[in-house]
């Protein structure tokens, strides 16, 4: 299929009626909760900026309009542009090739594009791929602004990725229950993760040394 529908009508009509499923088996139209979906398609940003977009236009929209991550924010629980564009991705269903461009080539340049791709991958990909695609960015310490109902806070890409891998709810969305890393290691689906900091035993040792006041100059 070379075209997308410009609006969301068919996407939403396909709810539960055999539209294409995401790679993790979920129906993309119902991954976000109903009240959130309704807030999104009602909001001005969605109507004005998310109509007739394709996978490349997503890049422009993120760069121009995504200044923070978050689900719904403020007293009005307004859906963030970040959340609206995640919903648009659920509608577009971009391929893995495209996601790699968002994550890597685009993600180096635009941190909010990387954050958006990480969020979308967590919602739609199988556990093994989620871990493999997201974990490299536990090394990305760039700052992200995050808005919630409570206000604005600072977070980081690595922290956001960690939230996606370990928390149940992120950005107004209940994440599907993914098997824990150690379970997938036991099943030999995943190799143990190697931290960019190196071997754990060495680290613990060097920490002890630092505490002893010997420092790193040994």
């Amino acid at each position: 299929m070379a075209n997308h529908r410009a609006d969301e009508k068919r996407f939403l009509d396909e709810r539960g009626s055999g539209g294409p499923l995401a790679p993790n088996g979920l129906n993309p139209a119902t991954i976000m909760e109903k009240p959130v979906r309704e807030r999104i398609i009602d909001c001005y940003f969605w109507k004005d900026q998310c109509f007739a977009l394709n996978e490349a236009d997503i890049v422009d929209r993120v760069v121009v309009h995504v200044k923070f991550i978050g689900g719904t924010y403020g007293d009005a629980q307004r859906p963030s542009p970040f959340l609206c564009l995640a919903f648009k991705l659920l509608q577009l269903g971009p391929s893995d090739d495209i996601l790699r461009e968002y994550l890597d080539f685009g993600g180096e340049k635009f941190k909010y594009l990387r954050a958006l791709a990480c969020f979308y991958i967590r919602l739609t990909r199988q556990a093994k791929n989620v871990y493999n695609l997201l974990e490299p960015y536990l090394e990305d310490r760039r700052k992200l602004k995050r808005k919630t109902r409570m206000g604005t806070a600072l977070t980081f890409i690595d922290q956001f990725v960690d939230d996606l891998l370990t928390k149940e709810r992120v950005c107004a969305t209940t994440l599907w229950k993914m098997p824990k890393r150690e379970i997938l290691e036991d099943l030999e689906v995943l190799e143990p993760r190697i931290s960019p900091l190196g071997d754990i035993e060495d680290l613990l040792e060097s920490d002890v040394e630092e505490m002893d006041g010997k420092g790193r100059d040994k």
Binding site: I98, G106, F110
Partner: peptide
């Protein structure tokens, strides 16, 4: 303006991975 871009069909053309990369470069 986007109504013109999608013509009469109400559809929008999918982008390929290389088009996405070009867009990233252009925006950058």
């Amino acid at each position: 303006q986007h109504l013109r871009a999608i013509g009469q069909t109400g559809e929008v053309q999918r982008a390929t991975a290389s088009e996405v990369r070009e867009r990233i470069e252009r925006v950058w």
